[in-house]
């Protein structure tokens, strides 16, 4: 990997087996066992390539946006880069620590208090105890939940849960930030605050992979845009050109 390359996606393909659910039961397992021909046929029919030979590099500090219609493979690609999924073919190389903001509040336990969930969710995201100890006040201050620290999260409103989750996820200074849509959660005040925080994180010199359906955001924030369709890269280039072509494509679809 070159010195200033942060992410290297090397001919990554990802195959899903849509018919997999049928293989769940013992009965089906035995039926398939005795008719290998049918099994093979079925397997082929239900195969689905979510990503096909996706290949690109991201330099340090670059903000790369992804556009494409629903089901184009954007989120799958982010998950592959974040290490949640291992690609069927190809390789992904990463040059720093990643903060995946794909979904917030992973691992929250509704029976635990806000305080306990900060540590639980933090550990799920890979933070250390020392880090959480030092950032605890900052997290709580940002979430504005000082008065509810020792209340079980099940008694929170959904907005409050989202605020806590957002505050925990964004407390880090990651080298690579993976964003699936800029999130604005909570009430109007908090929405503005969280959106600003995310814009700051994206604009703060870190390497960012950024999926959005808002063309305006993509054009504003990104250095480069990758357009995905049916799991394949259609085009890579300057935000202005790609966005224009993409919009044209969507209109004629």
């Amino acid at each position: 990997m070159k010195e200033n390359t942060m992410i290297q996606v090397d001919r990554v393909s990802m195959r899903f087996n849509l018919g997999i659910e049928k293989n769940f039961s013992l009965k089906q397992f035995f039926i398939d066992l005795f008719s290998p021909k049918r099994r093979k046929q079925k397997k082929k029919n239900s195969e689905f390539w979510a990503l096909k030979d996706v290949d690109f590099d991201v330099k340090r500090g670059e903000v790369v946006g992804f556009v494409g219609s629903n089901g184009a493979g954007k989120s799958t690609l982010l998950k592959v880069v974040a290490g949640v999924m291992k690609p069927t073919k190809g390789k992904v190389k990463i040059g720093g620590n990643i903060c995946p903001m794909i979904e917030l509040g992973a691992g929250f336990d509704m029976d635990l208090t806000a305080r306990e969930n900060v540590y639980l969710n933090g550990s799920v995201l890979g933070y250390s105890r020392e880090f959480l100890d030092s950032k605890f006040d900052e997290i709580i201050a940002f979430s504005e939940l000082q008065d509810f620290l020792d209340v079980p999260v099940r008694n929170f409103s959904s907005g409050m849960v989202a605020r806590l989750a957002f505050s925990i996820a964004t407390v880090v200074d990651p080298e690579i930030l993976i964003v699936d849509e800029i999130l604005s959660v909570g009430d109007i005040n908090f929405q503005q605050k969280s959106e600003k925080k995310m814009r700051n994180m994206i604009g703060g010199g870190t390497t960012v992979l950024f999926v959005s359906h808002s063309i305006e955001q993509i054009q504003k924030l990104c250095d480069r845009v990758i357009w995905l369709e049916h799991g394949q890269v259609v085009k890579i280039g300057k935000p202005k050109e790609i966005c224009k072509e993409y919009l044209e494509f969507m209109k004629n679809k």
Partner: peptide, 21 residues
């Protein structure tokens, strides 16, 4: 070593949740 903190959190979560109510 890296994930021992997570391990510890998961164990203590199970323990807390089991008896909390």
């Amino acid at each position: 070593k890296k994930y021992s903190f997570l391990l510890q959190q998961l164990v203590s979560r199970d323990f807390k949740v089991k008896y909390k109510r």
